[in-house]
Design a protein around this nucleic acid. Structure first.
Lengths: 86, 86
DNA sequence: GACTATCCCGGTATTAGTATCACGCCATGG
DNA sequence: CCATGGCGTGATACTAATACCGGGATAGTC
């Protein structure tokens, strides 16, 4: 075994990330955000639905940029432990 | 062809990301940072040397956390154009 | 000089991420 | 009722990311 499969915790984390991105998208259409970020609609959907639990760094960065959400905000919201009361 | 290979620009961007992370590591040993971030030493060095141009989001996040560097700072330093002079 | 430790690089194996294709669901308009 | 378009999901193809294995180079020590 060379690479451990993703743990349920990781998948759950990805699901939360997707939920955050979808929430940040608001009422904007997926096509809109996909075009703005340069990410394909399919990738966007999969990330938003949590089916891609650990997307590439720059993919998330592009989406966050298009959604005007700081990456650190995403992380903070993902890990309430570090709650900065954001 | 279903997935376009990484462009030279993407590889260069990954190289800059690695350089930034290595600079942020300072004089701390790779093993130290790897242990602190939970990233394997090999993955860390591949990222630092730019041989992994587009690492996973949470991998970069873990490294940035261990290095005490905000992700947005990394992005800003990668793309000086968007420089918010943060 | 030999030994040890650390860093770096190569190859290999397996899983994950992304793109394309195909189908079904829902809403809208003919 | 049927057609169209956007959204969601599943399967498939291919590349990339990560882990494990070995080797080599360098610095420090004995």
């Amino acid at each position: 075994m060379v690479r451990p499969p993703l743990t349920p915790a990781e998948r759950d984390r990805g699901r939360r990330l997707g939920a955050l991105l979808r929430a940040a998208r608001g009422d904007r259409s997926p096509a809109e955000v996909a075009a703005a970020s340069g990410v394909s609609q399919e990738a966007l959907r999969k990330i938003e639905t949590g089916r891609v639990p650990t997307p590439a760094f720059f993919t998330v960065a592009a989406l966050a940029g298009a959604l005007d959400v700081p990456l650190d905000r995403l992380l903070a919201d993902l890990a309430p432990d570090t709650a900065l009361t954001a």
